[in-house]
């Protein structure tokens, strides 16, 4: 086995961003789980309650940062894993664009949700 575990070139921008987003996610994902499962219970979520949270600017920004970093980290992680499995050439280009489009749709839809929630108040 001459294979390295990862072809995710250490030192590349994608490699670096995967780690930077991982550190950001430690805080945002940790906060999210604590806040919506242990402090507020998921089963008691109402649109009014979500709107009250989203109406606060700091919360809104945090949730958008969480969304963008999770989308990037997750999809970049999959892309790099596929490269490790030997994805190349035209299929690599197709997969790259599919993941990019999926991520863009995810982020736009997530922001639309956050805006709609914040708009409930007032």
């Amino acid at each position: 086995m001459t294979d390295r575990r990862s072809r995710f070139e250490s030192g590349s921008i994608a490699w670096f961003l995967q780690r930077v987003t991982a550190v950001v996610l430690l805080f945002t994902l940790g906060f999210h789980f604590l806040w919506l499962h242990f402090v507020n219970h998921a089963a008691e979520v109402t649109l009014w309650g979500s709107a009250l949270r989203m109406d606060r600017f700091v919360y809104f920004i945090m949730i958008v940062v969480f969304l963008v970093t999770a989308a990037y980290h997750g999809l970049n992680g999959i892309y790099n894993a596929l490269l490790n499995h030997g994805l190349s050439g035209r299929r690599r280009t197709v997969v790259f664009w599919l993941l990019t489009i999926a991520g863009t749709v995810l982020v736009i839809q997530g922001i639309r949700i956050a805006v709609a929630m914040a708009g409930v108040i007032s």
């Binding site: 109402t46 649109l47 009014w48 979500s50 709107a51 999770a70 989308a71 997750g74 999809l75 992680g77 999959i78 999926a102 995810l106 839809q109 997530g110 639309r112 949700i113 709609a116 929630m117 708009g119 409930v120």
Partner: peptide, 29 residues
């Protein structure tokens, strides 16, 4: 990692119900 990104897509899909729901203040109340 795959479970988490898969969940994120499902999660956003479910939360999308907030978009039509937001324009009905009486039901929200």
């Amino acid at each position: 990692g795959w479970v988490l990104i898969g969940y994120l897509f499902a999660h956003i899909a479910v939360l999308s119900t907030a978009i039509p729901a937001a324009s009905d203040p009486e039901a929200i109340a």
